[in-house]
Write a protein that binds this DNA or RNA. Structure first.
Lengths: 207, 207
DNA sequence: ATGGTTCTGTACTGAATTGTCAAATACGGC
DNA sequence: GCCGTATTTGACAATTCAGTACAGAACCAT
């Protein structure tokens, strides 16, 4: 028995995420968020507790999408595991694959990992942001490691390799391409880097 | 016949770099720079043309250090090339090796690449920053590629591997560890990632 | 010593930003 | 149809910020 919300919470957070992506955290004012989301200042403070709250909840939403999308893309039968890994690596470079059917890359701004960008800017002085960002890393690394294990079971990756170490390395490479992309390199160059990484994966001894 | 400068230009730019590293570009005010460098606003504007000018010149100074340090650490006889690459990879993870004798790592803030941090924050909307950051990338990648070629000549790396592709991948990995470091991971974890990367380098076919 | 030139520090202005508040509004239950 | 409640809106004050201007200080050459 009261006035209901006139906005969709997830939609607002997604718009805020876009804004934070393009202008950074310290580079966006509350008015920017207000303009991007269509919400007034009052509503922003009442619902999300200001700029910082919007960021935390936007990151939480990103994490939720990631935690659902990454396993969905990487999980599956052992036979196709290596190929799934290959596809993930290539697509991740042009935008974190959140689902199998989601198109890969609009532009570079949306291609980089939101958590990585925020962690790089303010993670060192904001423990909550750092923790949320690391959660995003972990959920992806775990899904990748599981896929590596599947590929090992299928005989496509050297069984002596530590799947967790390999997963950390692969996700590190993907994050590295975010940085290289920020340098202005072309998507083709980033693809080439991802292919090089894939080519170096340790194969079984012989046969 | 006039009053000389009372400050050392490089020293000031280095202090500004530290400030930008810790609070980001948009997170630092001119007063912050003034406090960090000891220079008054007037001098800052007269000498560096304000905040943006300070950033550009600080990045130029970083680039200069990089352009001198990276080749110095990586260049040398073919015999030790692989080991130099190994050492560079391990040390780069804890701070860009600017010279052979410079100690590796104070803390994480100074360990990450200054150019990478600035490019990630404002590179997309600041072509000058993006270009300067990419110059930093290029000068390191070139030195790494040269070292890879040396290792190939010495029979330590598969001669069929493209040294430029390999160099891009290696530098991408190093930049990736900057991001993972921003997530809060321990130096030991970053070292482990670097070791994994080194272990995957393509060795010659056999013998 | 002295004058001219450059540097240094501070005060100032206009704009931007943050967080809060109160009045207006819209909806659901009765 | 009416009322209570939560949302929305816009405005407000206090602070911060960037960039400029100006006056004083320091130095070197003569």
């Amino acid at each position: 028995m009261a006035r209901p919300r006139s906005f969709d919470r997830d939609h607002v957070l997604h718009a805020a995420e876009r804004q934070f992506r393009t202008t950074g955290y310290n580079g966006t004012s509350v008015d920017d968020i207000s303009a991007a989301t269509g919400l007034g200042r009052g509503s922003l403070y009442a619902t999300f507790d200001g700029k910082h709250g919007v960021l935390l909840q936007a990151m939480a939403g990103y994490f939720a999408r990631l935690g659902q999308g990454a396993p969905q893309v990487l999980a599956g039968p052992d036979e196709g595991a290596l190929e799934r890994l290959h596809g993930y690596l290539l697509r991740a470079v042009h935008g974190v694959p959140l689902a199998a059917d989601v198109p890969p890359a609009p532009d570079r701004t949306t291609a980089t990992c939101f958590a990585a960008k925020m962690a790089m800017e303010i993670g060192a002085s904001d423990p909550e942001v750092q923790r949320l960002a690391n959660d995003c890393f972990s959920v992806v690394a775990t899904a990748v490691a599981e896929c590596v294990r599947a590929a090992q079971r299928n005989g496509d990756i050297d069984p002596d390799a530590d799947p967790d170490d390999l997963a950390y390395l692969l996700v590190t490479i993907i994050r590295g391409t975010d940085v290289v992309g920020a340098y202005g390199h072309s998507p083709a160059r980033l693809t080439s880097i991802a292919e090089s990484a894939f080519a170096l994966l340790p194969r079984p001894r012989h046969r």
